[in-house]
Write a protein that binds this DNA or RNA. Sequence first.
DNA 1: CGAAAAGTTGATCTACATCAACGTGCGTGG
DNA 2: CCACGCACGTTGATGTAGATCAACTTTTCG
Lengths: 267, 267
Amino acid sequence: MTRARAIAPSATPLWRKLGSYLELRDEEKGFLAELERIVVGHPPRTDLLQQGERYGDVRVMRDGWAMRHKALPDGRRQVVNFVLPGDIIGIYCNLFDVADHSVTTLTAVTVANFAPERVVELFQRFPRLAAALAWAGAKEEAIVAERLLSLGRRTALERTAHLIVELLRRLTVVNLAENGRFTLPVTQEILADALGLSIVHMNRTLRRLRDGGLIEVNGQKITVNDLRQLASVGQFDELYLHLIRAPKRLDQAFEAARGDRDGVRLA
Amino acid sequence: MTRARAIAPSATPLWRKLGSYLELRDEEKGFLAELERIVVGHPPRTDLLQQGERYGDVRVMRDGWAMRHKALPDGRRQVVNFVLPGDIIGIYCNLFDVADHSVTTLTAVTVANFAPERVVELFQRFPRLAAALAWAGAKEEAIVAERLLSLGRRTALERTAHLIVELLRRLTVVNLAENGRFTLPVTQEILADALGLSIVHMNRTLRRLRDGGLIEVNGQKITVNDLRQLASVGQFDELYLHLIRAPKRLDQAFEAARGDRDGVRLA
DNA sequence: CGAAAAGTTGATCTACATCAACGTGCGTGG
DNA sequence: CCACGCACGTTGATGTAGATCAACTTTTCG
C-alpha cells in the first residue's frame, strides 16, 4: 500500500457509473466525493481482501484491474469475476464478518477506502444512491450467473469466446476499449481459473481462436477481429449485461414514486 | 395462477428472514404486510418469469420451491439457484426491463405480488428494510459464486455432495429439514442442470453417494446419514452461507450510525 | 545476463458425455 | 379395471473433451 492522499472532488468511475443510472444531485455528489476522499495505491498481485479473514474498509476501485476469486483447501481456484474501475469491494461487509473470497490486484491499482458505517449512513440519507448501488450489485450477480451458465453448459471454445466478448462490451462502455482492442492484464493461468479449464487447454483454446482469425493476441493486448462470429461462437446474448438503453431509469422511477406516494399508501 | 386473496398481516417467510437481520418496527412490519397483501397460487412446472420477456410484478416466494435458470438458444440449460420461501423474484425489475433468466415453480407455490414502484418507495421510506434486502441480495450472490467454484473446480462427486450439504443447511435454518432429512422436489435432470452434469452421470454420482452410505434417497426425500463425511467430500466450508452468528447485526449498524451521524458528517 | 514466470506443444489418460436399452411407477382414457 | 403412454430412473458400452504429464521456448525482470 502506498500514497494515501486527499483529492479534490471530481468525476470518478463510481460517480460516472451511478451517474448513468440517475442525475446526481449536489448533495449526493458531495457525499460520494467524501467517500472517495482517501485514495490508496497498491502494486500488482496484492491481496485487497483475503478469504477467511475479517473485512476491513469498504473499497472503491478507481483505477486498474483486480480479480475476485475463491479457493479450495487443496489449492484449486476459481476466479469469480474481474473487478474494474467503479466497482465496489465489500460493500456489505458490516453484515458479513469474514470474507468468503479474496480480491487480488492484477495491475497497479488505486482504490478509495471508507468505513463500513458510511454505507449505513448512505442508506439513511441517500436512498437514491442506495438504490443505485443495489442495482449495481444485481448487475454483478447477473454477470456471475452468466458465467455459471458458461461453466455448466458451454464448451471451452464457447466459454472463451463468450468471456472475451463480455469483457470487450464491458470495457467499451467505460472507454477502456476501442476498435475491438483492449488490454487484458491476465496470464493464461488466471484466464483458465476464470473459465474452469486447465492451463494447457486454455492455451490451446486461445490458439484455436487465433488460428481461426477471430482474435489477435500480442502480450496483454487482445484485438477482436470478427466480433460477430466471436459472439456467435460464444452464444453471446447481451441481455444479462443490462447495458442501459433508457439512461437515468432510476431517476424516472424515483420521480414516479414521489407522485404516487400519498395516494397509494395503505390503499 | 389461482386464488388471489387478501390475508391478515402475520409473520411470513420474508418477514422472518428480514426479522433475523433487524428488529422490525411496527411501521416496517406494516409496510411488509402490505407488500405481501396479494397472494397468488401457481401449480408446479409453471413459469413465474421467462427469459427474454419483460418483467412484471415483483414476487415474494411464500411457500414452495422454484428454480432460477438460464438457457442457451440450443436448449442447454443451467439452473442458477433454487428459490425458497422468503426469496424475492425480480426485485430490481424497474431497472432491468427484460429478464435474463427464467423462474419456474417446482412444487405448487404461493407467491405475493406487488408493483415494482413499491421498491422505490421502500428505499425512500424504509432505509433499514432497503439495507436488509440489499444484504439478502449479497447473500444470494455469494451462493451463486460458490456454485461457480463447484462447476469450475469440483468433481461431479464433490459438487453433488456440496449441493446436498448446502441445501440441508439452508433448509434447516428455515425449519424445512430435520435430522438431516428434507424434501428435494427435483428430478435428476434438474439436479444435473444445476451441477453442469449429464443426467446419466448425475444418476451414477448419486448412486455412489448412496452406495457409500452417505445419503439415502427415496422419492423426493433425501436423508443425510453422515453429514461430516458428506461435507468433507464436498469440501464444504459454510463461510459463504453467512449464516448469522450475531443476529440483528443490521440493527446494531443502524444504531451506531445514528450516534455518529452529526459528529462525523463532512468531517 | 541469468533465473523465474509465462507460453507452447506433443503424448497419454480419464472424467464425464453420449448412445442405447430397459425398468418402474403413475395418471388417464377406453 | 386394465393397458397404454409417458416421465423418470437405472445400467452397460463406447466416445471424447479436456486433464495431466513432460518437455521445450519465449518473455520478463531483477
